[in-house]
Amino acid sequence: MAQQRKLNKGQLRRVRQNQQRRLDTPSVEEEIANDDLAASEHGVIISRFGQHADVLGDDGYRTRCHIRRGVESLVCGDSVVWRRAKSPIAEQSVQGIVEAVHPRKSLLSRPDFYDGLKPVAANIDQIFIISSVLPAFSAQIIDRYLVACEDSEITPVIVLNKADLMNELEPEQQAEITTTLAMYEDIGYRVMKVSAHTKTGMSELTEALSERVSVVVGQSGVGKSSLVNSLLPEIEADIGAISDNSGLGQHTTTVATWYDLADSNIGLTGALIDSPGIREFALWHLERDRVAWCYRDFRPFLGQCKFRDCKHRDDPGCALQEAVNSGDLHALRLYNFHRIVESMQTQKPPRMTNKGSAQRGK
């Protein structure tokens, strides 16, 4: 390993000056004493930016707050205890302090190759899995999100956006999408076909939001922000285009953001969370057996294979393969399961390979 270069005298002097400046400059937390804060209030995290977060108070107003050092893992949707500053402070944009977080009833997380399992949003009732005709419809991507929903015990709703473009596809492609969506309905998942452009199916989608906290997920470019804009036109979420080179969506939303439906003109209560666009939802943090359990239609057959270490491929006496052959299990689902398991091994960070999965026990 190459030796690290030593700092010269000028560099050392500047480093020490910067360190001393940080020590001499009081933080927001130190600057606001308890006597300078109003009584505790309850609120919801709208979005988070580093050590700051926007809090929606009971009065319906948004307040930028500093996060106490002792508060861990704060995300959009968290229910918190916070206090307003009685007088202006140095950082004019900061007008309060988040002091505590209430226990979560649910948490949606996604694996990050460098940072491990990263929470996305909390206290969610349902997840809208947005797919679309363009970019290319993918049942495997939908299955990844379904596994994440089942693992988090959050109700999924599959939404096919850009349904107005179906007639532009080849008949074989139309048949494939129609058959796949029917498969998910047969399994027991709710499926909607909508178009943010023509407003087709939007009334059904709007009704599904009522009295629930919902999060929108899906690959970049499937039209998440367009759907959010159609539902809540006053928020004007950024809309991205499809890359001409890759055919993939380009990221628009950068942080998970909470939108209170009570502030909209659709006359509903509840909330909608728009999440950062991701092109693929990795599952390397789960064990293979956990992924199999998260396939809802696998559960009647799990534990019935002839061998305990059955890989569900060509193993003799495999209950899943027998279910496929008898028509009791969709072949596409088993195919997607194997593709997911294979990708988990290649996507898993090196630090995880010897330590096992970081999955939560359930």
Results as ranks from 00 to 15, higher is better:
D274Y: 11
I239W: 04
H52L: 06
D186L: 02
E153V: 13
L205Q: 02
A182W: 02
V157Q: 14
R110M: 03
L117Y: 10
C65V: 00
V98Q: 09
D54R: 08
D115R: 15
I177G: 01
V15R: 15
Q321F: 09
E91V: 02
S230T: 14
K362Q: 13
Y184N: 06
R299I: 04
R308K: 14
L165E: 08
R360C: 12
K199A: 03
A282E: 14
R212Q: 06
L268E: 15
M192K: 00
L107Q: 10
R16L: 02
D297T: 09
I130L: 14
G221L: 01
H197Y: 08
G50V: 02
C305Y: 00
G50R: 05
K162Y: 10
I235V: 13
V94H: 06
R144I: 13
D289I: 05
D36T: 12
Q304N: 12
L329G: 12
V15P: 00
I46W: 09
S106C: 06
D78M: 08
F301E: 06
L320E: 07
R5A: 14
E287G: 10
L169T: 07
C65I: 05
E176A: 01
E168Y: 04
F137K: 10
S203G: 03
I45S: 09
A39D: 13
M202H: 06
N336H: 12
K193E: 07
L169D: 04
V194S: 06
L248Y: 11
E91I: 00
K355H: 15
A182Q: 00
H197C: 03
P316H: 11
V81P: 09
C65Q: 05
D112E: 12
A163Y: 15
D297K: 03
D54L: 07
G223F: 04
F337D: 10
V217E: 05
L23K: 09
R212N: 04
N354A: 15
L205H: 01
T252V: 04
A2Q: 11
I97Q: 07
Q17V: 03
G361A: 15
R144H: 14
E153M: 13
H338C: 03
R212W: 02
I45A: 11
Q3I: 09
Q17C: 05
T257V: 08
V71T: 03
K362T: 12
D151K: 11
V75K: 08
V120L: 15
E168Q: 07
I177N: 02
Q174T: 04
V215N: 07
R308H: 10
R313I: 13
P276C: 11
V55M: 05
H52K: 02
I89W: 00
I127A: 12
T63C: 03
N265R: 14
A323E: 10
Y184W: 02
A33H: 13
G60A: 04
S79V: 01
T253R: 07
R48G: 02
F113R: 15
Y114L: 15
M352T: 11
R279C: 07
Q11R: 15
A282F: 09
L232H: 07
Q140T: 15
S138L: 11
G77W: 03
E99Q: 08
K311L: 12
V291D: 08
A262V: 10
M344G: 10
N265I: 07
Q321H: 11
V98C: 07
R48C: 04
S357G: 13
Y184H: 03
A208S: 03
K355Q: 15
F113W: 15
T269K: 12
E150K: 13
Y184C: 05
V341E: 07
I130M: 14
V71R: 05
V120G: 08
F113V: 14
E211W: 05
V159H: 11
